[in-house]
């Protein structure tokens, strides 16, 4: 039983980080029909911003991390939108899918070539101590990750539903034409979405990288998990991506322990196929009207 609780808690912890990436993914899709196949690399890259700032430029970690978030917002948010998404907006989904796949390769190769092909140790924000609660031992970073990730998503939700800008962003996502008629600057709202995605990816990166090492190939699994979480939860809902992320984190942990470590990766895929066939709008999603 104590083992079970441990697995659940650490599953929720990684799951909440997956959820960060998945929420960003969902936001981009809603605002601009961008399926970002480079989302995994977007989570991989900010860790290397931190490493460049600390190791190469000698900045302290507490300064490097906020700077890395800012860099991510500028490069993975604004620049990505300006250089790649904006010119392709009118061409439809598939060319953009190809372009983001290529962008993923580009980011991966650049990190590999200009930084290092080897896994790099990454500073952890929290002490690696383990708390004893009953018989279960729960590590402090797990709890801290869970709190920070959930807090970020909660704050985002508050921003989206509680402020004028946030509601304009939601309006843009739901119906850009009507939003524009009502005086919403939809271009600016779409840009905000990209900036937020950059920030979410950077936070996810800083939280998840100490668990593994910082490596150019980290994005491969992360990106896939973010897609699956977004779809399983519901593509048009932030709550959905959150639930999807948590669910995947827990399933991943439990299946590794109780099911089969060989087919551990298969379980999320099967879940994905079943969900898409049975409930294509996702667990929490609402059905979208079909356009002819």
């Amino acid at each position: 039983m104590s083992e079970f609780i441990q697995l659940i808690v650490s599953g929720l912890s990684t799951g909440s980080i997956y959820a960060l990436a998945a929420v960003g993914f969902t936001l981009l899709w809603q605002a601009s029909q961008t399926i970002n196949f480079a989302q995994g690399e977007f989570v991989m890259v900010p860790a290397f911003f931190v490493l460049v700032l600390t190791v190469k430029m000698g900045l302290p970690v507490w300064l490097a991390m906020p700077l890395a978030v800012i860099l991510a917002v500028l490069i993975l948010g604004a620049l990505f939108k300006r250089l790649i998404v904006e010119p392709m907006f009118r061409h439809g989904t598939i060319p953009l899918v190809i372009a983001t796949i290529a962008l993923g390769i580009l980011l991966k190769e650049m990190v590999k070539e200009f930084y290092s092909p080897l896994g790099q140790p990454f500073p952890s924000l929290f002490p690696q101590t383990v708390l004893k609660i009953g018989n279960a031992s729960i590590s402090v970073p797990d709890i801290a990750n869970l709190i920070i990730a959930m807090g970020t998503i909660f704050a985002l939700q508050l921003f989206l539903s509680g402020t004028r800008t946030g509601r304009s962003m939601q309006a843009t996502a739901q119906n850009p034409d009507v939003a524009q008629i009502l005086g919403v600057d939809i271009k600016r709202m779409v840009l905000y979405t990209f900036l937020i995605n950059g920030a979410l990816a950077a936070i996810a990166s800083i939280l998840i990288t100490p668990i593994y090492l910082a490596k150019f190939s980290n994005g491969e699994t992360l990106g896939l998990v973010a897609f699956i979480a977004a779809i399983v939860g519901g593509f048009n809902q932030i709550r959905g991506a959150l639930v999807g992320g948590l669910l995947l984190g827990v399933i991943d942990n439990l299946s590794a322990a109780y099911f089969s470590s060989e087919y551990r990766q298969a379980l999320p895929m099967l879940l994905l196929i079943v969900i898409i066939l049975v409930r294509p709008q996702g667990l929490l999603g609402t059905a979208e009207g079909r356009t002819v």
Partner: peptide
């Protein structure tokens, strides 16, 4: 027959990973 576009992309993507496994 049920889903289109990006959903279909992901079903086939999942299928590819399953075959690989």
């Amino acid at each position: 027959l049920r889903v289109q576009h990006h959903f279909l992309a992901f079903v086939t993507l999942a299928f590819n990973t399953l075959v690989f496994l």
